[in-house]
Design a protein around this nucleic acid. Structure first.
Lengths: 172, 172
DNA sequence: ATTTTATGTCAGCCTTATTGACATATCTCA
DNA sequence: TGAGATATGTCAATAAGGCTGACATAAAAT
């Protein structure tokens, strides 16, 4: 938006008006980018008889071995009934396995099988290719800016939680 | 990710490996950010008996007065049967009106009513507040970087089309 | 005059989500 | 030890938002 400002000249409350002027560009670009981003894995998932819900579950389990049902529900923000259907299918088709918790035997600890990890990686690589293509034309600092922007877009009271989940696997 | 590089030292094909190393951070942040971003309008939409599908239709019609059905289908990437259900409801409840095309009388030109524009604006402002909060802690160049990143994430063969749709209303 | 295009509509189906109720096993704490 | 809380599973009904396929109409294009 090269020139959204001239209209402000007739106002003295520039800052308020700026704050209330809809950021249509970022709203719409977010929609289109997400639409195309999630569409990449669809063709592959189809071959396995899976949908996007399966992808999300497989992704987070593969990335976080030993994840519990409760943690997964918290990540996905769906009900246990919804989760159970797709999880059951992933377990039946041997992409995820569920082991009894060691310290708390009520818990089910989820692990991706070899097959599951392979599929999750395949899908992640596909999306990474799109991300890399987008970043390739940009300055090196851009990636960090994008990452910080997305993190700040998240509800503040959970951004720490997400930060831990996304960046916390390894160090910290 | 402070140090994803050391592993590369044992390889001579650094670039290939980097290209194939999944960008888990950007993949997951995109998921969480989008999840929270689209959740904002939900409560308000509920009051009107609308869902996210209604929001998308109302948004693009409000932003592009005189949009045709075909153009809307191309933006949303859904079937006309799916569109028709939500569109019919938006028209019945007087948030959108449909006029016969002037040059081509087969076309339906879609316009948001006053009520429709008000709701669309209300929702856009809500999402803008989140965006502004995210941008507030960042350098001024960040917004442009984010905008370019999102645009590049879109399928290349349509990015020009989206660019026109998003930025093209007004000048060009 | 025929064909193509833009739209609408009927009917049936799928996926992913929801709510509410209830069951079971296990853990925790008084 | 016994009561209650917790983690999970499951049954049933429902809703939203997609899909395919088939068919209809009006208007434009050739």
């Amino acid at each position: 938006m090269p020139d959204a400002l001239p209209a402000l000249k007739s106002h003295h409350l520039g800052k308020d008006i700026l704050a209330e002027t809809p950021a249509y560009d970022l709203i719409e670009l977010f929609f289109f980018a997400y639409r195309d981003f999630v569409s990449d894995p669809d063709r592959i998932l189809d071959e396995y008889g899976f949908g996007r819900a399966h992808h999300r579950v497989l992704h987070f389990v593969s990335r976080n071995p030993g994840l519990t049902i409760a943690e997964l529900l918290d990540i996905l923000r769906i009900t246990k009934q919804s989760l159970n259907r797709v999880l059951k299918e992933l377990i039946e088709k041997d992409f995820i396995e569920s082991r009894m918790g060691t310290s708390d035997r009520r818990q089910r600890l989820l692990f991706a099988t070899i097959q599951g990890r392979e599929l999750a990686l395949k899908l992640a690589k596909l999306q990474t290719r799109r991300i890399m293509r987008a970043l390739s034309g940009m300055e090196p600092e851009a990636k960090d800016a994008v990452s910080r922007y997305l993190l700040s877009l998240i509800d503040p009271d959970e951004s720490a939680h997400v930060k831990q989940l996304v960046f916390g696997s390894g160090e910290t």
